[in-house]
Structure formats: structure tokens, C-alpha cells
């Protein structure tokens, strides 16, 4: 039995407290960076469910990010529908696309699946750039709505017009999605995901409907990425085709692998490290892709389990006990 206050839980609690209190101390600029870290963490967490736990490498998550962002933008700007219905519609649309793309794509394995996800991301990128009437083309869409105030009891309202409020709004979704993923991978469904990632043929032989389970994982992952896309669009209020550019999906994958795929903390650690370090060193944005690529390459060669996986291995060795870790330990 784990005690209520296991070191792991205390760590999570401390991280949450820091995440809540930090923006109150630091200035607006750093808060906006924390907000972006939270948004990209959501994508990394959702990709982790698919790649880290279910073993399906998708290079197409920029597509779901773009679909979530553009769905909110188009519904909010062109159809003049209020924020909340548009927001939930955007999430549902990303999930629906995930489901529809997942059906053909997940029939394929290994390199074929990766290629179809990349091809899908490329199609979405082409459409976002090309369908000017709908998406604004290269100019993008401006005036994406911010969340409208929610009335609370006692005559108060929950407003989202400040940066801080937007940050907490995003953090709320990050915590919610991380919690859902945490419960999910420890459920029976999550165990079947892990079984599929370890050996898909064996899982199938054990009577797991692998296609159905992979589709569930893919749809949830797409839906959560759509949440991040919609949050990004709402925060930025302007969206450009860059959000749906395939390299965004690769950046997220780089964060996930550097942090540690198949671990709960990995995606968040990775996103934080990969965003905070270039920011602290004041590296020009044009160099980011180059440096991210190098970091990813070094990790995949020398520490494919990422930072979290490395720590896990270190502690496991110290305790001289078998690691009961979940996910694809040893596999990035």
C-alpha cells in the first residue's frame, strides 16, 4: 500500500503549488511564457497517452492542434457564436477528426502509421494555407474570442480578460487532462494500452481488441490536443497557419521524449526544460528548431527514456528493487 503522502504525491503537490503561485511573483512576460508552457504541456501529455503509453508514434499532432485552433477561430469569428459553445464545439471537432483519421491510420503499423499521420498533418497544413475564405490563408484569423465571464453565485463573475486569469484557465485544463490521463493509464483500459505498446500481436492474441483500444487512445489524444489548440487560439486571439505546420508536432514530440515518454511527469518536465532553457539563454527563435533537433538527437542516442526515465532508473538502482514503472520503459 502506498501511503497518502508518498514522495511522488508530495512532488506533484509542490509542483502544483509552484505553478499556481509563481505567476503572482514573476512579471507579465514570464507569466505569458508559463502560459505557453502549460499549453504545449497539454499537447505533450496528450501525445504521451498515444505514444508513451499506447506505443503509436504520431507526427501528425500539429493537425489536431491546428484543427482545435481553427475550429474555435472559424466558429467564433465567422459564425459569431459565443466563446463557450465554440470552445466545446472546437474540442468535439478535433476529437471527431481524430476518430475519423484513426480508423484508416491505425490499421497500419510501424513506419506506415507514422507516414500516414505525417501525410495527414501535411494535408491539414495545405488546406489551412489554401482555403483562404475559411481560414484567412497566410494572414490567419484575427479576433478569436477570449472566454466570456461565467456568472457565479452571490453576484460575482469569473472573468478571463487578464493574463493571469487566462493562465489559470489554461492551468486548470492542464491539471484536468493530466489527472484524466493519470486515472486512465491506471485503469483496465490503460493497462490494455500499455499491453499494446509492449507487443501488439501478443495483446491481440490475449483477446484485446487492439484496433478499438488504439482508436480510443488516438481519439482522446486528438481531443486533448484540440483543447490545447483552442486555448492557444483564444489566448493569442490571432491564429496563423504556423500553428498547423507539421514542425509543431515534431517540437512537441521532442519535448515529450526529452522529458520522458511513458511517464506522467515526463511531458511536463520536457516542455518546461525545452522552453525555459532557450528562454533563459535568450536564444534567437530562428535557432530553436536547430537546437531542439540536436537535443532530441542526443537524448534519443544516449538517454532514450528521457529525463524522467533517467531519474526513475537512478532511483530503481539505488533501491535495488524491480521498477514497477508503467509504460514503455527503455523505449522512448
Amino acid at each position: 500500500m502506498k501511503s497518502v503522502f508518498s514522495p511522488e504525491r508530495i512532488g506533484w503537490l509542490l509542483a502544483l503549488i509552484v505553478a499556481v503561485l509563481l505567476p503572482l511573483v514573476v512579471g507579465g512576460y514570464l507569466t505569458s511564457i508559463l502560459l505557453l508552457i502549460a499549453i504545449w504541456s497539454i499537447v505533450a501529455v496528450s501525445l504521451n497517452l498515444l505514444y508513451g503509453y499506447t506505443g503509436q508514434l504520431s507526427l501528425g499532432h500539429s493537425a489536431f492542434l491546428g484543427i482545435g485552433a481553427y475550429a474555435l477561430g472559424i466558429i467564433g469569428v465567422k459564425l459569431h457564436i459565443g466563446f463557450w459553445p465554440a470552445f466545446f464545439a472546437a474540442i468535439a471537432i478535433s476529437g471527431l477528426f481524430g476518430f475519423l483519421i484513426g480508423i484508416p491510420a491505425l490499421k497500419l503499423r510501424g513506419p506506415y502509421f507514422v507516414l500516414v499521420t505525417l501525410g495527414f498533418a501535411a494535408i491539414v497544413g495545405v488546406i489551412v494555407l489554401g482555403w483562404t475564405q475559411l481560414t484567412g490563408g497566410a494572414n490567419g484569423l484575427a479576433g478569436v474570442p477570449r472566454p466570456t465571464p461565467i456568472p457565479l453565485p452571490f453576484g460575482k463573475t469569473l472573468r478571463f480578460d487578464s493574463l493571469l486569469a487566462m493562465y489559470y484557465f489554461t492551468l486548470f485544463f492542464l491539471v484536468l487532462i493530466a489527472l484524466i490521463c493519470h486515472r486512465l493509464v491506471r485503469s483496465l483500459l490503460g493497462r490494455t494500452f500499455v499491453a499494446i505498446s509492449r507487443d501488439e500481436n501478443l495483446a491481440e492474441a490475449l483477446g484485446i481488441n487492439t484496433m478499438q483500444k488504439k482508436l480510443i487512445s488516438f481519439t482522446i489524444s486528438a481531443l486533448f490536443s484540440g483543447v490545447a489548440g483552442a486555448l492557444y487560439a483564444s489566448y493569442n486571439s490571432v491564429i496563423s497557419p504556423d500553428i498547423a505546420y507539421f514542425a509543431r508536432g515534431m517540437d512537441v514530440l521532442a519535448c515529450l521524449i526529452v522529458g520522458g515518454a511513458g511517464t506522467m511527469a515526463g511531458p511536463m518536465i520536457g516542455t518546461f526544460v525545452m522552453t525555459a532553457i532557450p528562454e533563459a539563454l535568450q536564444i534567437v527563435p530562428t535557432l530553436r528548431t536547430l537546437i531542439n533537433g540536436f537535443i532530441l538527437l542526443i537524448f534519443i542516442i544516449f538517454l532514450p527514456t528521457g529525463i524522467a526515465g533517467g531519474f526513475k532508473a537512478l532511483f530503481a538502482r539505488r533501491r535495488r528493487s524491480l521498477s514497477s514503472g508503467m509504460g514503455r520503459n527503455g523505449i522512448a
Binding site: 506505443g55 508514434l57 507526427l59 510501424g110 513506419p111 507514422v114 514542425a247 515534431m250 517540437d251 514530440l253 521532442a254 521524449i257 530562428t286 535557432l287 530553436r288 528548431t289 536547430l290 537546437i291 531542439n292 533537433g293 540536436f294 532530441l296 538527437l297 534519443i300 542516442i301 532514450p304 523505449i331 522512448a332
Partner: peptide, 21 residues
Amino acid sequence: EVNLFVAAMALLMILEGGALF
């Protein structure tokens, strides 16, 4: 094999980033 895919992708990022720079 997935690690090899990721390595190929990292190369893509390095080449694209290097070319941009």
C-alpha cells in the same frame, strides 16, 4: 525501431533549423 524514426525526425529538425539559420 521507433527510436530510429525519432532520430530521423531529429535530423530533419537539425537540417531545417540549420538551413533557416
